[in-house]
Design a protein around this nucleic acid. Structure first.
Lengths: 195, 195
DNA sequence: CTACTATAAGGAACACGGTTCCGCTTCGCA
DNA sequence: TGCGAAGCGGAACCGTGTTCCTTATAGTAG
């Protein structure tokens, strides 16, 4: 799943040129993702990095691995923002709303990521797993807090909600007629208990 | 866009074998769509129909044309159900909910249709256009009625809502952990005016 | 019934993107 | 400086959409 990235992993240290190529590839992938989306042809990324295609496969066996590596920092930041919001914002419901907004902003600014996130094609399980492992618990915590506070219904499943929000973000890039944030806000509003 | 299907169109009548093949192709496509989804390989559909691949392209220049032809009846039925529900159900909001359910049921039972409906790849504009032309006005009517009745907010755009609902249906086929209907219900509930 | 022509069919050929394989290069170390 | 192993590049392979060209056939006139 995760690659032996030079220092974090267990095995023997990789060669210097290999580590250098990995950095180069990450930068190239990030750049290409911005312009052509996360489903850009492997050859394009290789060309941008000035390496052969096999080098990509050697470092990132599946596209999911590459995507995860490129966005890991931002996903971590999003995950860590959950508890912080819960602690710092007036009501759990407000914290939930803010956190969901963070997630939506992240998704809609990553061209094609939302689409690939819900793809059921083989090879994306790792992406699925990573996002869900990292974010669903955070979402669950926020949901639970809001439910305990009596602000929303208590039968909402975090996984289901995350998938729904992710789906609503599909195709939201640069289309002025489709405002994913607005729709997500409706969805979250629909969780409120009638009062 | 639409094909000269034997009788409806304007041009001179097509040859008998051509019309026969068109029927055969529609049946084959419908069958293959059920088992392999609407993105099944062209060759599979051709093989099932016992024709060459070029025959498909001759009758249905783009995949969108084929999909439209296969599901036209059901889309029409859905469109016609809108006014009927509005006339026969107690409140406009209830009619809206029922109609949305019809639409969701249609989408989730057509393997991969929701995904392709929102695809931005070239060649699917026709599909987009057909669905939206046919269904958005109906949805708009229901929304307007519910808004006039004071049941929901009045700033909801039909196109946006339809796209949101369609997105929520993506990947809902045979996945017990994801209930598109439930999420759509939350979304619709989120349109209600606070009272 | 036969001959002719426009229409349509079939399948090979092409384009394109993901994936794998193999001979060559370069690193790291003694 | 020499050597083994790790790493590299790009050609080759495979599956799928799309087009082209040759052949077959429906429809019609004689």
């Amino acid at each position: 799943m995760t690659v032996n990235d030079g220092d974090g992993g267990a095995g023997p240290r990789k060669r210097a040129d290999a580590r250098r190529n990995e950095r180069t590839l990450l930068d190239a992938a990030a750049a290409v993702f911005v312009t052509s989306g996360v489903e850009a042809p492997v050859r394009d990324i290789a060309a941008r990095a000035g390496v052969g295609v096999a080098t990509i496969y050697r470092h990132f066996p599946t596209r999911a691995d590459l995507i995860i590596a490129v966005y890991r920092h931002q996903v971590e930041a999003c995950a860590e923002a959950g508890p912080a919001l819960l602690a710092g914002v007036a009501s759990p419901y407000a914290a939930l709303g803010r956190w969901i907004n963070l997630f939506v902003d992240f998704l809609v600014t990553k061209h094609g990521l939302a689409a690939v996130l819900r793809s059921d094609e083989a090879g994306f399980e790792a992406l699925h797993a990573y996002f869900l492992d990292r974010l669903v618990p955070v979402c669950g915590q926020l949901l639970q807090a809001a439910a305990v506070a009596g602000e929303i219904r208590s039968d909402v499943d975090a996984l289901e909600l995350m998938r729904g929000v992710g789906n609503l973000c599909i195709g939201a890039e640069n289309d002025p007629r489709y405002d994913a944030r607005r729709l997500v806000a409706f969805l979250i509003a629909g969780l409120r208990l009638p009062r």
